[in-house]
Design a binder for these strands. Structure first.
Lengths: 221, 221
DNA sequence: AATAAAATTTAGATTTGTCTAAATTTATTT
DNA sequence: AAATAAATTTAGACAAATCTAAATTTTATT
């Protein structure tokens, strides 16, 4: 079965939203895809008709087994291409997302397998996300709590443990956001505060409480 | 300026048709793109509105300077990707066209330049077609007359000098078509006939007259 | 439990690229 | 040069993906 680029983008977005909650809602997906709720409803009908989705009107939705299988194929392609762009074409890990968003829609199973072979079967992409193999299996994510990041290991903020406005205010003040590249300079045992350094800026320290809400992924450079 | 995949396919097809005649006609383009004449007319209006085309109703059309520039960018991408697929991913030169047809529409100037660097600035693609550089300049085509092909050099038929039904009947009988891989086994001076061998089949000979209507491109394997 | 608010869906419109069938223009033949 | 044939364009329709605005359903609040 082949899918349009638009269908694939919806499938992938639903897959990602599903990772943090069992059921996805129309508004969440609309926000994720920067589109309107009505457009989402339209596409949900199509994906349900193609039997990729469990969906009852007004009740939320999630991918079924086939939907997940398709999602993993797209994610596999995305992450393999990212790996190629960084390792072979010398892109920075933070420059490749948009290009990979296009490349992931190229339709050719054999191309993906040959690319995987050429790259020597990488297990993680440059952002530290695991690359599914041709059966959709992958290693557990390398995301870890900032408190567990080893000293001097370069990492990027991948998610935050809450969306409270107090937390967001603090993060904004400290200049920390999703994708921020940092490393731990020192850990203090007295109060478990952590001194971190964000690329090319002076180090500063953050509380244990803050560090515990931050998740990061080690990155290669 | 960015173009849709469909616009790019029209631009590229017009470019190729222009190589053998000054003006392109609606029906020719429709045949080339496997679409209807009415659809071609619709698209011609759009391309003219975007100022890529010299076009007067009923009078034929051709790309203007800007149209040619855009066409060469697309062709550059197509041929660089073909080179990558053959040299790095181990595809056969005859397996890569369809995949490159998709890859050529990926939008990223920097990607093309990095790919070119990675591939070490190849001058010809695996079919023997020249790859335009970033300014649209390229070497002359490697296409040559079959009578000039050196012995044992592998080549692929790239075009035929006429479309007469008598010629096509003969070619069909001999099993020769566009893309047929062959090599010259021997040349006879008496009648200038040429013995050729098509991949994995017994050699046979063809007349000078026939050989003169066939154009080929040397290929790597 | 009734009402207000929020989320979701439906109805109907728009854009892009395509199509068929009819109309028009150009080319060819007698 | 008139008639016929071929090529091209126009008119109007359709599918895909989106949108706005209105209607409906669900959730939250008094």
């Amino acid at each position: 079965m082949n899918f349009t680029t638009s269908e694939e983008n919806y499938i992938k977005a639903i897959y990602h939203l599903q990772q943090s909650e069992a059921m996805v809602t129309t508004n969440e997906l609309a926000a994720q895809l920067q589109t309107r709720a009505a457009s989402v409803t339209d596409m949900l009908k199509k994906l349900k008709a193609k039997d990729l989705l469990l969906y009852e009107k007004y009740q939320g939705f999630k991918l079924n087994a086939e939907g997940n299988r398709v999602a993993l194929i797209i994610i596999r392609k995305h992450r393999l291409w990212e790996y190629f762009l960084v390792h072979n074409l010398n892109f920075g890990w933070d420059e490749v997302h948009e290009i990979a968003e296009e490349l992931e829609h190229i339709n050719s199973q054999i191309l993906v397998e040959r690319l995987d072979t050429f790259l020597d079967y990488p297990k993680f992409d440059p952002h530290g996300d695991p690359i599914p193999d041709s059966n959709g299996k992958m290693e557990p994510s390398k995301q870890l709590n900032l408190t567990d990041l080893e000293i001097d290991r370069m990492a990027a903020v991948s998610s935050v443990g809450s969306q409270s406005s107090e937390l967001l205010e603090l993060l904004s003040h400290k200049g920390i956001g999703i994708g921020t590249k940092l490393q731990v300079v020192r850990k203090f045992t007295f109060d478990h505060s952590i001194e971190i350094e964000i690329e090319n800026t002076p180090p500063f320290s953050i509380s244990q409480q803050l560090a515990q809400t931050l998740f990061v992924k080690p990155i290669s450079r």
